[in-house]
Design a binder for these strands. Structure first.
Length: 513
RNA sequence: CGGGGCGUAGCUCAGCUUGGUAGAGCGCUUGGUUUGGGACCAAGAAGUCGCAGGUUCGAAUCCUGUCGCCCCGACCA
């Protein structure tokens, strides 16, 4: 008992949120910085989350008619050049391959064999996929093309943060091509809906669906839609995006087809993606001062059984009981899948072991010791409760009870996150209030931010730019009507407090990751 | 890429101002005592002090350069 009632993570969220976050990632053994600047090593416990996300999303993509494919990591420089806005958006952060061979010179390896055309390591794949689609599409009968790829991408970030912003990250990018504009728009919105459902039902993160303002739009897109989440420092984080690309990339890549009227038309394309950033979002949304808190549906392991073996003579019996319990739990299911159960029989101190699992965020811990064998019970501790709280339940009933507890945790986390966001979202109608709301008390130190402001806006990029300049606050999204969970959100006419001009609706302002 | 800070054992850091040849805590290994909760005792392994020059009889310490990391800003999923 050397640590008393201290929390496992120091500093705590209130003291220094960014540092708290780094400590959570590290102590949960999710990821660490690698020797390559800006890149991370995703450790098994973190990668398990990604695998879960992939599994769930991939099923949803398939269910909406998509298939997976894979396109090259390297993109010819000339391809990237074809779409003007796209170039401007990504040029600053591209890794470029200029050589294809190494030679030994005076004991040192030096690049040799210069490429005639440099290759860009994909920051996103619109251009390479577009040029491929151009070859595949001849007739309206070849459309739609509905593909997704799971891949890594590279954006040369100057200020990396584990999961949230790294030079290389993992994601999925869906790329579709359609015959008509309305079909492409429908696809864009449909996939946004998939992301929203996934965030809510799997990650227990409520998100706001909406459209990005022009200045926040994806380079080359006609319209960018997004889901925005609020994390515990009350900043906004974009958790997923879906782009209606219009005919911009079709024009740049030459995706042309003969229409039903025998005229040559440009296809309408979309793209949409989520990345390993979701892991960071998850940690910041649900974590507490003892570390990660994982929603059961996404956790790699849902239940860890910790055998308590104080005496050598009872050890074998306890371990046997733990195995038996694990088997009975694995036979049970939650949310349509077998329970994911792990036994931690490592020979280390019991307290240390327990705290490791707390920091990793496992939803349920079951401790079983010699006394429990006699009484036929087991101690069950929930990660969403205090670290010392545990309930003794008959071990016979556990297989029936655990799925119910997992569901309670899953729903509880969502409810908590939703309540948190509501508590920190305000309708603000004057410029003075708005500036007061977003003016930090200490600009040089990371701090808990104010939250979201629902404020009228005249639609002008100048107003937006001014606010960004003054407060580092941006429009996170123009929310869809009727979709602000729990509460009705409708278009209402009003006055933009920054310009005094008319506004047709409120938009979400916030500080962003 | 601009401003600030820091590089000493696996981790967190002390030592540097006033040069004299390497320290602590945690972790790790082994043995023992423990055990319903981040245990204790003992022994042990582990660092060319980021790197390269320079000054000096002598550099973790002073000087120059360089690389890397962290924080703030710009940018972004």
């Amino acid at each position: 008992m050397s640590k008393g009632n201290e929390s496992a993570i120091s500093p705590c969220r209130e003291e220094d949120f960014p540092e708290w976050y780094q400590q959570v990632v590290r102590s949960a053994e999710m990821a660490e910085n690698s020797e390559v600047g800006g890149c991370m090593v995703i450790r098994p416990w973190g990668y398990a989350l990604w695998e879960r996300m992939q599994g769930a999303l991939d099923g949803m993509f398939k269910a909406t008619g998509h298939k997976n494919a894979y396109f090259p990591l390297f993109i010819p420089l000339s391809h990237l050049q074809k779409e003007a806005d796209h170039v401007e958006g990504f040029a600053k952060e591209c890794a470029v391959v200029t050589h294809h061979r190494l030679e030994l010179k005076e004991g040192k390896l030096v690049p040799a064999g210069e490429l005639t055309e440099p290759l860009v390591v994909r920051p996103t794949s619109e251009t390479i996929i577009g040029s491929t689609y151009a070859k595949w599409v001849k007739s309206y009968r070849d459309l739609p093309i509905l593909l997704n790829q799971w891949a890594n991408v590279v954006r040369w970030e100057l200020r990396p943060r584990l999961f949230l912003r790294t030079a290389e990250f993992l994601w999925q990018e869906g790329h579709t091509a359609h015959e008509t504009e309305s079909e492409a728009v429908e696809e864009t919105v449909k996939m946004l809906g998939v992301y929203e459902t996934f965030a809510r039902d799997w990650l227990a993160i409520p998100v706001i669906r909406g459209e990005k303002s022009e200045s926040e739009r994806f380079p080359g897109a006609v319209r960018t839609y997004c889901i925005e989440a609020m994390v515990q420092d009350r900043k906004a984080i974009q958790a997923g995006t879906s782009h209606f690309l219009g005919q911009n990339f079709a024009k740049a890549s030459g995706i042309k087809f003969l229409s039903r009227n025998n005229t040559e038309e440009l296809a309408w394309t979309t793209s949409w993606g989520v990345s390993t950033r979701l892991i960071g979002t998850l940690l910041m949304a649900h974590g507490d001062d003892d570390g990660a808190v994982l929603p059961p549906r996404i956790a790699g392991t849902q239940v860890v059984i910790i055998p308590i073996t104080p005496k050598e003579e009872t050890r074998a019996a306890v371990l046997a009981k733990a195995e038996e319990l694990a088997s009975s739990l694995r036979a049970a299911s939650y949310s349509g899948e077998s329970l994911r159960v792990e036994i931690d029989s490592r020979d280390i101190g019991g307290g240390t072991k327990t705290w490791e699992w707390i920091k990793k965020g496992v939803p349920l811990r079951i401790e079983i010791g010699p006394r429990d064998l006699e009484s036929g019970s087991a101690a069950v501790a929930r990660r969403d409760k205090g670290p010392k709280e545990k309930e003794f339940l008959p071990s016979e009933s556990l297989a029936g009870k655990i799925p119910q507890l997992l569901e309670e945790i899953q729903q509880g986390l969502l409810a908590r996150a939703l309540a948190f966001r509501k508590e920190h979202t305000y309708k603000i109608d004057t410029k003075e209030e708005f500036y007061a709301f977003f003016t930090p008390k200490n600009p040089n130190k990371p701090e808990i931010h104010a939250g979201f402001a629902l404020t009228h806006w005249n639609g002008s990029p100048e107003v937006e730019a001014r606010i960004k300049e003054d407060l580092k606050v941006t429009i996170r999204c123009i929310p869809e009507t009727g979709t602000l969970d729990g509460e009705e959100f409708v278009e209402e006419a009003g006055i933009c407090p920054f310009s005094g001009e008319a506004s047709s609706r409120r938009v979400i302002f916030g500080k962003a990751y």
